[in-house]
Design a protein around this nucleic acid. Structure first.
Lengths: 353, 353
DNA sequence: TTGATCACCGAAACCGGTTTCGGTTAGCGT
DNA sequence: ACGCTAACCGAAACCGGTTTCGGTGATCAA
């Protein structure tokens, strides 16, 4: 039985209205009374009932994070850090952070509608949108402030925070080309994911910028896991002309690739180069340590929270868009292609040009 | 402007009281009226304002997860999965999950007091308690239902879910002994953490059960990270008689140990055996794949949520205690000690017995 | 002295639900 | 025809705050 405002008021010989205004710094309360109320409040340990307060002021003061889950798979590793950052951003205003699981494909919109209609949330953070994500359409139509962690094709109208996956994969491909690679494959995630399409675009653009083409079978779309990366790699290595370099849509897939390469008796970084994406800390302990395109994860949650609060304050979503860059972290899985292959490669290039 | 109950009522020519009772299946509402209300409700997309509802029924219908953070370090990897499970458990009753960061040492109790006093939460889930955790004392005194993910020394009075770290380390030590090891060291986390003490107890007990002692310097308490594991390992390997087997308080520390061992030109699993703890999926990609004591993480969140809801329903905390067992997952970092060392070792044993 | 102004606080409406209580109507027995 | 009961719903209190509005007392000028 917590101490209520009424109890505080009668204790002071005042009315609840006066107490409320005193605590909220209304100008029509004398400094003396305000001080008295303050003193009594924290002597009795009074805290306003937030449920009542929020009902009264008309906002839930709560935002919701739609935690991505793909069934069977485990929660993506960035989630915990993101939540920490979000929590920090919201804390400065005493807003609450609600976590709800959300699977973009699976009739998940109903949950969202209920959440909004029931006035539980004043804003939404949405991770890993699909290329055409029904949730974005929904949130827009319902007028619920939201910010997307990632982007879709039509990303002009809403607020987002993203890392430039396309540029990252151009960089990755460039890097391999400069090392001497000509046969560069990609292991991509399922293309309904917006980020997968972006990274694929980057791969293609990177090859084109270097006057290279995507050889038959060099684009492998696999399950978004280490197992997916491994099986895709096996397929690649079984090709008549296997690639000498592989870029992967995630570090996790890249780790699977490393395993598959080692299983063939080859050495990642010498026989086949592999570049991952994410920059998960764990990569340094891989065998060998994984070269990757690292993104600055730490900022994400904090920024998403700040942006969402701005939106709720009435900011224009188009002014709340932030694109971060990934950067190459060279470890041990990138290197020049094996000599013999490079030779062969040159002749192929001359043939095709 | 969502449709409110009053709007629904006037639309139907009823009063709000009637509508409310109809929707909540009161027996004094005719089946016909109930049906009419139901139909109109979901035709207009009516959803009860949860803030108002919760104020009225007197419970926030929300529980809070205290997300552990040690400053500087990153969020522990189990958090995301735990949240997913928690969320599932709470969803069946439409309770909300609030995430709050919490650092046990750092005057964090004030935040908790405010949360409870302001009626924002009806229960708390608390991860990684300290050996004597002020938060547990606080929650008990305030009468706030809570369940601890982990245990402290005095764990009888409250609800908890834990994995038996002591037994796990007995098992790990036994395993190394059976492989022929006699010089077994431990790299432990800071001992203010309850789990660290438990695992250390298991290590000591395991040695004692095998009539072995803890040699001077064989217990290294290090920072709870891969860097900590690495530097502790370097100290161990610099000992006049370095260990042939090392058990680590976490997989992350174990990975650091592997790196340090390889840096000395030694091969983990052949020259020095290493056993981690946690069973993080990533361990299979370590160099070499990490042998570890794996715990069944998937259940944790779900169980914690169920237990907390039971407590809120009035269950006795002492009936809500669940101890899981870790199991040994053999990969490639465990093996018999090197021959030469084993020889030396035998002679040592004979000397000391 | 009187009226106007101002500082300060009480009273009450309100947020949107839930729940109690009481009254109306219909159906029934006598 | 009358009373009684049960079924059904309206009215209003309530949850614990916020905010508007109006009233009191003091102060001040005329």
């Amino acid at each position: 039985m917590p101490v209520t405002q009424k109890a505080l008021a009668t204790h002071l010989g005042l009315t609840v209205g006066t107490v409320s205004r005193a605590l909220n710094d209304y100008p029509d309360i004398s400094a003396e009374t305000r001080a008295r109320v303050r003193a009594a409040a924290d002597r009795l340990g009074y805290r306003a009932n937030q449920t009542a307060r929020r009902l009264s002021i008309g906002t839930p003061e709560t935002v919701c994070y739609l935690m991505p889950r793909q069934l069977g798979a485990h929660v993506p590793p960035f989630v915990a850090e993101l939540l920490a950052g979000l929590s920090d951003a919201l804390a400065v205003r005493n807003w609450d952070l609600l976590v709800v699981q959300s699977e973009a494909g699976a009739g998940d919109e109903e949950t969202l509608v209920k959440l909004i209609r029931s006035n539980r949330i004043g804003g939404v953070v949405l991770s890993r949108p699909l290329k055409t994500d029904p949730r974005i359409k929904l949130l827009t139509e319902m007028g619920c402030p939201f910010v997307v962690h990632g982007r879709t094709a039509s990303s002009d109208a809403y607020a987002w925070y993203d890392v430039d996956g396309q540029e990252a994969f151009v960089t990755a491909v460039n890097h391999l080309v400069h090392l001497g690679h000509r046969r560069i494959a990609m292991i991509c995630a399922p293309l309904q994911n917006a980020f997968a399409q972006q990274r694929l675009d980057g791969y293609r653009r990177g090859l084109r910028l270097n006057a290279l083409q995507v050889p038959e079978g060099y684009l492998q779309v696999a399950e978004f896991s280490d197992a997916g990366g491994a099986s895709a790699t096996r397929i690649l290595m079984d090709l008549p002309r296997p690639p000498t370099g592989i870029v992967c849509a995630s570090d996790e897939m890249a780790l699977g690739a490393l395993a598959a390469i080692r299983d063939r008796g080859l050495e990642p970084g010498r026989d086949v180069s592999v570049i991952g994406y994410d920059g998960v800390h764990f990569g340094v302990h891989a065998n060998p340590p994984l070269t990757t395109m690292a993104q600055p994860q730490a900022r994400a949650g904090r920024r998403l929270g700040d942006m969402l609060l701005s939106l709720i304050d009435g900011a224009d979503p188009r002014t709340e868009q932030e694109l971060q860059r990934a950067h190459l972290v060279r470890r041990k899985t990138d290197g020049p292609p094996p000599k013999s292959v490079a030779m062969t490669d040159v002749s192929i290039r001359e043939e095709t040009t």
